[in-house]
């Protein structure tokens, strides 16, 4: 069996859904280089994506033959996906295209506008996501936010305090409860504010 030192991999392209992407990489195994095209899956334990057996590792000569064929016949091959679709194929294709379009719109980064205000609520920030431009408000009633506003903390201190309080807040939420995702987010915001001090 080859040791890990026998094998290296450089990722070149990742497409498709983040939790089940298709990854193109240049791998080396026992001194031979391959162009590897492979489906990955999300491993819940390590919280990373890992390769599945579904894929192919092309040797240099195989790669050149396949890519030569694909580029020469690109237009005709493209048509194979759309020619004479039966209604079921048409519906499935439409559903997938719509799903991709929805995800693209969802993931478009919205513009943001941030201001400092004072309110007596239990949250150190509020984000109005109902508008095209997200309006983010920071509550300078919170001592740490007031310090940030006055530039009394360095960038690393701000980051450390935010992440530390976030970790404590996350820890404080009872795990498997019946509360809705919306309420969980509310709890997290309240607890985050409580620990940011």
């Amino acid at each position: 069996m080859a040791s890990q030192a026998d094998s290296t991999s450089i990722e070149l392209l990742r497409v498709g859904e983040p939790l089940a992407p298709l990854v193109v990489s240049m791998t080396t195994y026992k001194g031979v280089r391959y162009l590897d095209i492979r489906r990955y899956y999300f491993d819940k334990t390590s919280k990373t994506t890992k390769p599945t057996p579904k894929g192919v590792a092309l040797k240099e000569d195989e790669f050149l033959s396949v890519i030569g064929f694909l580029s020469g016949e690109f237009a005709e091959l493209k048509k194979l996906f759309t020619n004479n679709l039966v209604p079921e194929e048409m519906n499935t294709r439409a559903h997938r295209k719509e799903s991709l379009a929805r995800n693209k719109i969802k993931n478009d980064v919205a513009d943001m506008h941030a201001t400092y205000e004072k309110w007596r609520g239990p949250n150190f920030f509020m984000a109005d996501i109902s508008k095209k431009k997200i309006e983010l408000k920071f509550n300078d009633q919170n001592k740490v936010i007031a310090q940030i506003k006055q530039d009394e903390l360095s960038g690393s201190e701000v980051l450390e305090r935010l992440l530390h309080s976030y970790a404590l807040a996350k820890k404080s939420i009872d795990s498997p409860t019946k509360i809705t995702p919306e309420a969980t987010l509310d709890y997290l915001e309240v607890a985050w504010n409580n620990f940011l001090r």
């Binding site: 996906f81 759309t82 679709l85 048409m90 294709r93 439409a94 295209k97 719509e98 991709l100 379009a101 693209k104 719109i105």
Partner: peptide, 9 residues
């Protein structure tokens, strides 16, 4: 929003 035209023709 950009929305796909489902019919390829």
């Amino acid at each position: 929003w950009d929305w796909p035209i489902s019919d390829p023709v």
